[in-house]
Design a protein around this nucleic acid. Structure first.
Lengths: 232, 232
DNA sequence: CTGCAATTTGACGGTTTTGTGACAGCGGCG
DNA sequence: CGCCGCTGTCACAAAACCGTCAAATTGCAG
């Protein structure tokens, strides 16, 4: 198991639980950093970027949710996967309803096998991220570095969400995605917005693409979702 | 309501539980197939690929774990998500199950909200059509990933039902199916619609295929049903 | 060739899914 | 502050689709 030198930052205010987590995770051969509160967590992240953050959701001071938002909006940190630790009492829906952007949950009391299994799963899922490429399909160019789109040289004006949406589609062509999957991939996991919101952004994207004749590439697959395809 | 046309195969040896599951899952608007043991499950999977398998872990004959291994090592089946139904909530077993390759587990007794929530969660993570399942017969391509049908490169426009119907036929060629069987396989078990409805969808499918010259492959077997065949 | 039963086919009403325009809230920025 | 671009959600319009029916057609036994 060579993926096991991943660095995990545990943010948890209760010392006993913190120690327990450290013990368990070190046993599972992760490298551990600890933080007792959010300011300390900021410090640790600044020191060295962890591969994953295990974050308690109930903490004095800045809450886990706020901190998640903060992390997910920072350019440097937004790609760090976050697993939220919640008390069983809090329903997942409660958390989900709050528009957080974390990658998974574990609820106390949890078993260590379960915890490590979930960590592995999240790490596996978010592993191949981060590289910047130049995507282009039939004269439609998506430049990841500058976040700019050009259609046969002509610049296409897109909002941030439309850009991410297009970027996602262009890098996953010829494949149907349900609205839910699009939300997961483009908006982020565990972010709750209406599914139909996807429709609206699809609409906006098509509208922006239409003057250049590329709107037909965003295709509706009735009963399922949408697809990006070169073929009409 | 019915955005849920995912097909779930329930493999469970105890009839009462099976019926309960069917009731609950049909209520949640899934399309259900049932199997009482592993051999029957193999049959059902061969008939038509389910989107998810709900698998009892304790069964006479081949156990759930063995069957999971079998499925996960088969090229056609390795991408079908599996949820294991286990009697004991013991962690060891749980994790063993996860390591074997199943995607989640529920332990009896479980609540239906929990069950459906887990099913939804797993389905949400999986891409439609699984990994590239590419069916092709004589220039007629059925691509599960993009849910698109192409005839010699030309896209064929199909409604959801016609697509499923064709997908079913293409993956089971050279064999007659009665209307009832077609309804079971394509519409799902215990869905009551007139048998004649099959005729109409066959008609629609033929109509869509006709411009490309593939309509003759859908053949009528008078007195019995229909057959998909390459031979005229 | 005839008559019956099984299909084909076109049409229709109703339903579900998707497209679209409008709107209010938010946050950045001058 | 006030403007402005962006977002998510709604409500309504427009499509697409579904299941059923009945008339037309076809196939087949006799």
């Amino acid at each position: 198991m060579g993926m096991q030198n991943k660095r995990i930052l545990v943010v948890e205010d209760e010392a006993p639980i913190r120690d327990m987590l450290r013990f368990a995770l070190e046993r599972a051969e992760f490298r551990i950093s600890l933080a007792g509160d959010v300011p300390e967590a900021r410090l640790r992240i600044a020191e060295s970027r962890p591969d994953l953050i295990l974050l308690d959701w109930m903490m004095p001071g800045v809450s886990g949710i706020e901190f998640t938002r903060e992390l997910k909006s920072g350019a440097m940190t937004k790609d760090i996967p976050i697993i939220m630790v919640t008390a069983r009492a809090e329903e997942e829906d409660t958390v989900r309803g709050l528009n957080v952007g974390c990658d998974d949950y574990v609820s106390k009391p949890f078993s260590f096998p379960e915890l490590t299994a979930r960590i592995q799963a999240v790490l596996r899922r978010t592993l191949p991220g981060g590289e910047e490429e130049q995507l282009a399909v039939a004269g439609l160019q998506v430049d990841a570095a500058s976040q700019r789109v050009t259609a046969k040289g002509e610049p296409v004006r897109l909002g941030p969400t439309e850009y991410r949406l297009l970027h996602f589609f262009v890098s996953h062509p010829e494949r149907v995605y349900t609205r839910e999957q699009v939300l997961d991939r483009v908006w982020g996991q565990n972010v709750y917005v209406e599914e139909r919101t996807v429709d609206v952004h699809i609409r906006r994207l098509r509208k922006a693409l239409a003057p250049h004749g590329y709107d037909a590439m965003i295709q509706t697959v009735r009963g399922t979702g949408y697809r990006f395809s070169e073929k009409v």
